[in-house]
Design a binder for these strands. Structure first.
Lengths: 126, 126
DNA sequence: GTATAAATAGGAATGATTACTATTTAAGGA
DNA sequence: TCCTTAAATAGTAATCATTCCTATTTATAC
């Protein structure tokens, strides 16, 4: 695996992002700094970074996939009102996972956990 | 909403299935009993049944969507070896969800919880 | 510097799902 | 039982995220 400016840029954009960008959001941010980068290159590099376990890929129902710099096991909340995706359960999810592994005699390698609902901010606006 | 033989058939196939069929698997099973049914009709009826909360739609990363007759909150294990999708955490997931709601001050309306790993059967084959 | 294999840009292809439309059908009266 | 009519269907076309393809460019080791 050689280094490339495009791959570094793609990684930096996801790592610097405080939300969970889609491939297209990464592409748009990347073009601001490297106008000739192609969407295929963004997809390829996102996939390679996921394969190298430097990013996580999130699959949200009915939405484009998103990418996450946080590698530890955790859950997500997709807010129906503001349509943002939040990290939640940073500590609790590991315990939940370990418990499920034990009682079901299974091996869990990765997870994709998301909840639909209303985030704290939107809930308190009402 | 009128009744239709096609919709009843689609529901019966998912309800009778012990795994979590994809739309295409439902289509194939349906054609065995109603050869002229179309794939679009299967998709439309699956979506209507989900909207009526008679089925759940499952989105597994990199796979076609699947459909689930079990409506209570629970989690899933996608086995990397046999590629089957199993229900797990039938009791534990509700407690986990309630706990997350409390500590994060959020409202959870529905969930999609997937683990990727190795099921009990495949693990014990080694 | 040169060689060469990896990476890229740009566009074509894929495949699950949805949209469209002419035809069929369920269901409530007359 | 026969109409009426709006919902549902079959079959096909369209959509759209993502991947694939290929000629060209580029990083890196010698």
């Amino acid at each position: 695996m050689r280094t490339s400016n495009q791959r570094n840029l793609v990684y930096d954009i996801v790592a610097a992002s405080c939300n969970h960008p889609t491939a297209k959001m990464v592409y748009q941010a990347a073009r601001a700094r490297m106008p000739k980068i192609s969407l295929g290159t963004v997809y390829r590099n996102l996939n390679e970074l996921v394969e190298q376990k430097k990013l996580l890929r999130l699959t949200v129902q009915g939405e484009e996939d998103r990418f996450d710099k946080t590698l530890t096991i955790h859950a997500h909340l997709f807010c129906n009102k503001c349509r943002n995706l939040f990290d939640i359960g940073m500590e609790e999810t590991t315990a939940f996972t370990n418990h499920l592994e034990e009682i079901n005699d299974i091996k869990i390698l990765s997870s994709n956990i998301y909840f639909y609902g209303v985030c704290s901010k939107c809930q308190n606006k009402l």
